[in-house]
Simulated scan of single mutants.
Amino acid sequence: MFNVTIRQVGIEEREEIIICCHEISDEVMSLANSIKGQKSFLLASKDGEMFKLDTKEIFYIESVDNKTFIYCKNNVYETKQKLYELEEILKGTKFFRCSKSMILNIGKIRSVSPSVNSRFEAKLANGETAIISRQYVPTLKKKLGM
């Protein structure tokens, strides 16, 4: 059992949510992620315009030739942020690093199958295929609950 305390703060104070727990369990992480998810978006550009992208719409993020691209169902956007920065921002969400140059949204995976050299192949909901490097396979299995 736990207590819930809500305290109203003045407009000059920063709003914050603090979770105090004995153990960081899956339930605690799920709660934290759902709280974070309310403002879950990334900024990216396309054709000179800036867009606010809901992370639920993102299939994967890839770094190519020192540029970072965000792939959605029908559009590709560019962001100034580096892959390691996005990985930190998306920590604790459905995103995980699947290779040196890609972060994948596990919620967009339709199926997963073993591939050559201990790698896995993920078929995405948009029909594309992503390769999960062998060093990231344990993370994939953990995220999928395997």
Rank of each mutant, 00 (worst) to 15 (best):
V28R: 10
K100P: 06
F2N: 09
V64N: 10
D47M: 12
E16M: 02
C20V: 05
N33A: 14
L86C: 02
A130V: 14
R97T: 02
L43C: 12
F95K: 07
R110G: 00
I132K: 00
T68R: 15
E87F: 07
K80R: 15
L31H: 01
I6H: 07
K56W: 09
K91H: 04
I106L: 02
Q38S: 03
G48A: 14
G48W: 14
K46A: 15
S101Y: 08
T55D: 13
M102C: 09
P138V: 02
F96W: 12
P114G: 12
S45N: 14
M146F: 06
D47G: 11
V4A: 03
E16N: 10
S30E: 12
S40K: 14
R14N: 01
E85T: 12
E23T: 13
E13V: 05
V112F: 13
I109N: 09
Y136P: 06
S111G: 05
K46R: 15
E13Y: 03
P114W: 10
E57W: 11
S40P: 04
E57M: 10
K100M: 01
L140K: 01
F51Q: 02
I132W: 08
E15W: 04
I11E: 12
K39L: 11
K142A: 01
G48Q: 13
K36Q: 06
G92E: 07
N33E: 15
T139E: 09
Y77P: 13
S25W: 04
E57Q: 14
L43F: 15
E85L: 09
I6Q: 03
M50L: 11
N105R: 03
V64D: 09
S34E: 13
P114K: 14
N126L: 13
S34D: 12
